[in-house]
């Protein structure tokens, strides 16, 4: 059931942005799904738009089961997958390619039993850097699929402004209502969208 919901959310997210299958936010969703599949109960997503340094980074840290040296060294290989349903696993290798095309790179650190940190970096204004896309959809899709089993913190910096979203804060105010209730999810999406918009507003000073 849970998996079904997640799949439906992802399909819905993809079908309403038909032209944006390559958005970085979908790579983020892929990694978040890896994290939940690895049993993570806490995930932090940190996005930093460092306009002055012309650097764009996406960092995802989880407390899942982590990877051993062997899995870690194979994790960027498109012909390595832990799935047994098909022979290729393109998630991290596609993200590594997207980084490379935009003057950046993909770092993966992991320790068995402790978790994994993925850091994707890009030249911010590189002409081949893919757009971020809708992080609101991505975060909502993860929450819908994980049904409150995962605490997700999302920090997004642009210049010296920061937006923080934390599912623990939402859960506190819900008074027992499920966090993946459709109305809560649309509230979450709106909250993230307006939070991100506030990062772009011109300051008066």
């Amino acid at each position: 059931m849970r998996c079904g919901t997640r799949y439906a959310m992802k399909t819905a997210a993809v079908s309403c942005w038909r032209n944006d299958l390559d958005d970085l936010s979908l790579h983020v969703l892929d990694i978040l799904e890896n994290s939940t599949a690895a049993g993570a109960t806490e995930i932090e997503v940190r996005i930093n738009e460092d306009i002055d340094e012309n650097l764009f980074t996406i960092e995802i840290e989880d407390n899942g089961k982590g990877m051993d040296q062997l899995n870690l060294s194979q994790s960027r290989d498109p012909f390595f997958t832990t799935k047994d349903t098909r022979r290729v696993g393109l998630g991290l290798s596609m993200l590594a390619q997207a980084c490379g095309e935009a003057g950046g790179n993909l770092e993966i650190r992991s320790e068995p039993g402790r978790g994994t940190v993925i850091k994707a970096s890009f030249v911010y204004r590189h002409i081949d850097r893919k757009p971020l896309g809708s992080m609101a959809e991505t975060i909502a899709a993860l929450i819908a699929g994980s049904a409150g089993a995962v605490r997700l913190v999302y920090r997004h910096c642009r210049g010296n402004r920061e937006f923080i979203f934390d599912t623990a804060e939402i859960t506190k105010t819900l008074d027992g209502v499920a966090i993946n209730h459709p109305e809560i999810l649309s509230f979450i999406k709106e909250a993230i969208e307006s939070g991100l918009e506030s990062l772009s507003e011109r300051s008066n000073g």
């Binding site: 290989d77 022979r87 290729v88 393109l90 290798s93 390619q97």
Partner: peptide, 10 residues
Amino acid sequence: HPNIVAVAVL
């Protein structure tokens, strides 16, 4: 990129 081979196989 090597990913093109994976896509071709898939």
